[in-house]
Write a protein that binds this DNA or RNA. Structure first.
Lengths: 247, 247
DNA sequence: ACCTGAACACCGTTCAAGT
DNA sequence: ACCTGAACACCGTTCAAGT
């Protein structure tokens, strides 16, 4: 939750560290694109909530005010970062059958979003304001319409996309509480032989069999994501069959 | 995203406003329970991210340090708030058939969590560390085991609970961007007659038919929540049938 | 044991000049 | 048009005393 401190020399509190100022070193004017690019880099290294406007300014060798001048407030910068990240997600062609279309795009989106912690949450909050999502929305809705979802297409798109992005957002946030997983496992383990709580005892047994090293946790998270998507597609398929049967 | 300013007279920056201090007025020592109760009230009025330690202290007529002394840092206070809120969710008995068990608890949890904005997100992040969740976990897993989910019981519980709480969390966060919905609708509407983007055009048409007044938006959100749960239960049912067929 | 102040090291944003 | 400083109004947490 709390952003880790960065390495920048921002000892002065205000001001772009001790580096010479842009004007003094006759640097060219900063562009909005440069600001967003730097913000994307900082997001890659520290997550969306892991850098401050002041640190971004320092990284650009500029004063905080410059960012406000060219891009806007912090929310505007974050929005720019999200647009940049979303644009990297490959969009399957609209004639892909809908289950495969969603499997593919959501599977590909996960690592891209995970590499930029906190962007998944922003996508859920902002919604289609993220204009670089337009191609995905167009193709995805198109794919659902051809399958016969009719007026349910929009809600099913939202259902599947929301679940995927929210799951990634949850993974992102749990990264910031590395101790929480251990505490949770300990808590569950304490019920292992508790006959009065058979559900908790079973949960403890199931969770207890899973290895806890870094890479196997990563695999478990990926599996849970993939299976959740698979189940949700199955749920949507049930609805589709109902719609088609009704005709 | 940004907390709205509260009405407290915290003009002094530090210190519990102008009220007489606890010691001077011979008030009894503050208890952790009192601190959490007040924090729950503030959460009800302004959301988990809508109050500061300093404002909580002012509401208690105490200095910020007192909260750290009795409860801990801000995360500890928030954890206390979450425990208090989760304890209010009624847990259906363990012999309820699993689809009905989840329908009931998730349906009942939504308004309680919505009344305390930001707590749903905390639940997803914290996981079972929230000890007041133990009864629900015990009964829910029990219900899934009796249905025949076997070792999948834990993951299915996580799947259904995660989706519900994440959906509520997303609703909470969108409350803080009331303009985002309007912007999104405008954005979609601009594609209404765009033949080059049939998917977006269809989405615009579907969204355009929905009324935009406050109460009908609330109903749409509730419906989307209920239908998402229903679809996810259907997805879990598909898995259950596979498991049972395999035997 | 519990509370009081003040201080510390931060935030994002704004203001008024400068070049 | 763009950048520079300083200032403003906040944060959460810590420190050193007080009662």
């Amino acid at each position: 939750m709390r952003p880790e401190p960065l390495g920048y020399d921002s000892a002065m509190g205000t001001g772009p560290a001790r580096q010479p100022s842009r004007q003094a070193s006759r640097l060219p004017p900063i562009t909005p694109a440069q600001i967003i690019d730097r913000a994307v880099e900082l997001t890659r290294d520290h997550g969306v909530d892991g850098w401050t406007i002041r640190q971004l300014a320092a990284a650009l060798q500029a004063w905080p005010r410059v960012i406000g001048y060219h891009v806007g407030d912090r929310d505007a910068v974050v929005h720019g970062v999200v647009e940049h990240v979303v644009a990297q997600i490959p969009v399957p062609s609209a004639d892909t059958p809908w289950p495969e279309w969603f499997r593919r795009i959501l599977h590909d989106a996960r690592p891209i979003l995970r590499r930029h912690r906190g962007t998944a949450r922003q996508i859920v909050v902002l919604g289609p304001v993220v204009t670089s999502f337009a191609p995905a929305l167009d193709a995805g809705i198109g794919s659902l319409l051809r399958a016969g979802f009719g007026d349910h297409a929009l809600d099913i798109y939202r259902y599947l996309a929301n679940i995927a992005f929210m799951l990634v957002a949850a993974e992102d946030e749990r990264d910031d509480f590395p101790h929480a997983r251990a505490t949770n496992n300990q808590f569950l383990a304490s019920y292992r032989d508790d006959d009065a709580h058979p559900g908790l005892a079973a949960a403890a047994r199931i969770a207890g069999e899973r290895p806890l090293n870094r890479e196997s946790i990563e695999r478990q998270e990926r599996d849970f994501f993939d299976q959740s998507i698979e189940r949700s597609i199955a749920g949507a398929e049930v609805l589709l069959r109902e719609i088609l049967d009704r005709r």
